[in-house]
Design a protein around this nucleic acid. Structure first.
Length: 626
RNA sequence: CGGAGUGUAGCGCAGCUUGGUAGCGCAUCUGGUUUGGGACCAGAGGGUCGUAGGUUCGAAUCCUAUCACUCCGACCA
């Protein structure tokens, strides 16, 4: 009998983990198929087939290093090298050694199972793609040097695929003819290549990487939205099963456009993106996107007269605060940017509070502001305003001003006087000058109210491991991918696109789960579940007999076991197993056998625990969640 | 692409200023002693000093070019 259908039938419900995304997975709980009854016996039994198998350490490549290679910057890169999971072949290119590949395969398997469960169909497309398709979509020109292009012996042009919209759209326009075949969702787990300007952080930002990409096809945006929601749920299931602390966050739809887009971020201090999320709701967004609400309440009444002060040494907000003892929230930064054609002036002044940062995305969406956002140079604006960058402000500003919501709420504030070396203090809107146009101009900061009205925002770093978004008809239109509708008329398909950086998930799991001794794998993706560490395996017949027996018993029970039968001293074995990050360790010794016990230690535990030999399976069943 | 830096044994590094023909620790192999937290002793193997050219009696060392890698920045469906 083929194994594959058995697998599907025997799948357990995804394990709900309380540790990750508290409360988030309840959102839009979509049931794609009736839940199957959980049958522990079948699960356990079948798991034997699902496991990657057990190994004896003496016959396995344990490529641990004592010292950290000098070019490894982030912790996941260092530990992946030290634990012998990967080795660098060239910049941004890595070998996966056996130990690392096991984890990669386990992540892949979880992704595959959950994608299959959602009803998506697995395909495999070529890594090398013909230029013709990219020319059809227009991306042959659009995509910069990040697209690795090459020629074959016949001088035809190809690229190494960084993504597969063109190929899948081409495939579907040939195969799918009728609305009756929709909706449909196709995915692959494949090697991608992006010729990054600067690969770094090891597997986190390599040039070649493994990605799960899925593309869905629809007639109508409602159907697209339904599959989008299903993928949103599927991604939550996947990252919960992997065992990561993550957040789905609202993301910029970027150059593709479309209605909505979510990125899935693993929270880790080494992340490259800032994520803002509410402390009391499921709101989360890329900091670039999070709306900065107006401060609550009324503007405070004026208590000072506006007065001009000589500030020859205050070129920056920091100087102003230091030299003139002004609270930073009472200062205003004035930034001059190029104006759009709609504006009668060449420039526009954008005002944010001294302690806030301009959000360029928000600014360039304003009608009066030229996109892309371009800061004006002092040479350009000095003739118009008559002052340099350190002395700008709203009072007597000859060009249109747009002020941030927080600026609009300020009173008694200080700002440049548009005269070199002078600032006004005690400025108040309405009394000293008219309040100009108000807009959301700034990045949110820690402690701001959440845009959904519930709670306040925290900001943490995140590693993007997944991204889902709606492509709409961009590619179906470019490539002419149509189906016939009920009336026999050709209609362009709507498309969605859903990616997971599979190899990056491995690195991000380490970023989130490690200590000074090494990696601490979540059970679900650990290369081995249990490290069996016999002491004196080569000398003691009792130890050897028991270790061999337990090795078989644990395999029977469905665990992936690494039996460390190497002729090494105990300290070496312990250190290696901890560095590699095997989450459960069982030590077998003559001393223990005499007392009828084994020693159990979870990777995060600080103390060993003696357990009766016949209690091992029960203990592991209790400690291990797979 | 701009800025900075590094290339010496599998890994981490010294040697370079002041040229004299390569060394340390870890790892590996052999023998012995050890054996509950990365052992010890004795011995061994392993290097075109990134590459090419130049200066010199002589270059890891000085000069020139070049390649690779790393870091910071710009970039990132």
């Amino acid at each position: 009998m083929p194994l594959w259908p058995c697998r599907i039938r025997a799948q357990p419900e995804p394990i709900q983990r309380q540790t990750a995304v508290q409360g988030l997975q309840v959102r839009n709980r979509l049931v794609c198929r009736p839940p199957r009854p959980y049958n522990g016996a079948i699960f356990r039994n079948i798991f034997r087939f699902l496991g990657l198998g057990s190994m004896r350490a003496s016959q396995y490549l344990i490529a641990t290093l004592k010292e950290t290679p000098s070019d490894a910057e982030v912790i996941s890169h260092q530990l992946m090298l030290r634990a012998g999971l990967i080795r660098k072949v060239a910049s941004g290119l890595y070998n996966w050694l056996p130990m690392g590949l096991r984890t990669l395969r386990k992540v892949e398997r979880i992704v595959r199972e959950e994608m299959d469960r959602s009803g998506a169909q697995e395909v495999l497309m070529p890594a090398i793609q013909p230029s013709e398709l990219w020319q059809e979509s227009g991306r042959w020109e659009q995509y910069g040097p990040e697209l690795l292009r090459l020629r074959d012996r016949n001088d035809r042009e190809f690229c190494v695929g960084p993504t597969h919209e063109e190929v899948i759209t081409d495939m579907i326009r040939r195969e799918v003819k009728s609305y009756k075949q929709l909706p449909a969702n196709f995915y692959q787990i494949q090697t991608k290549f992006r010729d990054e300007i600067r690969p770094r952080f090891g597997i986190m930002r390599s040039r070649e990487f493994i990605m799960k990409d899925a593309y869905s096809f629809h007639l109508g945006t409602e159907s697209l939205q339904a599959t989008y929601d299903l993928m949103y749920q599927t991604y939550n299931n996947i990252f919960n099963r992997v065992g990561l602390d993550f957040r789905p966050v609202l993301a910029d739809t970027g150059s593709i456009g479309g209605n909505s887009s979510h990125e899935f971020h693993v929270l880790a201090s080494s992340g490259e993106d800032d994520i803002a999320f509410s402390d009391s709701s499921d709101y989360a967004a890329n900091v670039e996107l999070a709306e900065a609400l107006a401060p609550a309440g009324e503007r405070a009444a004026a208590t000072m007269d506006m007065h001009l002060v000589d500030t020859p040494d205050a070129k920056t907000i920091a100087d102003l605060v230091k030299l003139h003892e002004t609270p930073i929230e009472k200062t205003i930064k004035t930034l001059i940017v190029r104006a759009s054609d709609e504006c009668e002036s060449d420039f526009v002044a954008l005002l944010v509070r001294g302690d806030h940062e301009l959000n360029e995305l928000k600014a360039e969406k304003l009608a009066l502001v030229a996109a892309p956002l371009t800061m004006a140079s002092e040479d350009e604006f000095r003739p118009v305003i008559g002052a340099g960058a350190g002395s700008l402000g709203p009072v007597n500003m000859p060009i249109p001003c747009i002020v941030d919501r927080a600026v609009a709420m300020a009173s008694d504030f200080g700002a440049g006087a548009n005269i070199d070396g002078k600032h006004y203090f005690g400025i108040n809107w309405g009394r000293d000058l008219e309040l100009p146009q108000v807009a959301d101009l700034r990045n949110v900061v820690e402690g701001d109210p959440s845009p959904d009205g519930q709670g306040t925002l925290s900001i943490r770093r995140g590693i993007e491991v997944g991204h889902i978004f709606q492509l709409g008809q961009k590619y179906s239109e470019a490539l002419g991918a149509t189906v016939l509708d009920e009336n026999g008329k050709a209609k362009l398909m709507d498309m969605g696109c859903y990616g997971i950086g599979v190899s990056r998930v491995v690195a991000s799991a380490i970023e989130q789960n490690h200590d000074e001794k090494g990696i601490i794998w979540p059970d679900a993706i650990a290369p081995f579940h249990v490290a069996l560490v016999p002491l004196n395996y080569d000398k003691s017949d009792d130890v050897k007999a028991l270790a061999d027996r337990l090795y078989l018993d644990l395999q029977q029970a469905g665990y992936d076991v690494l039996l460390d039968d190497r002729k090494e001293r105990p300290g070496v074995k312990f250190a290696d197993m901890e560095l590699i990050g095997i989450p459960h360790r069982v030590v077998i010794s003559d001393r223990g056998i005499a007392a009828g016990t084994l020693e159990y230690k979870g990777r995060r535990d600080s103390e060993n625990q003696d357990i009766a030999i016949d209690q091992l399976l029960a203990t592991l069943a209790d400690k291990l969640s797979i």
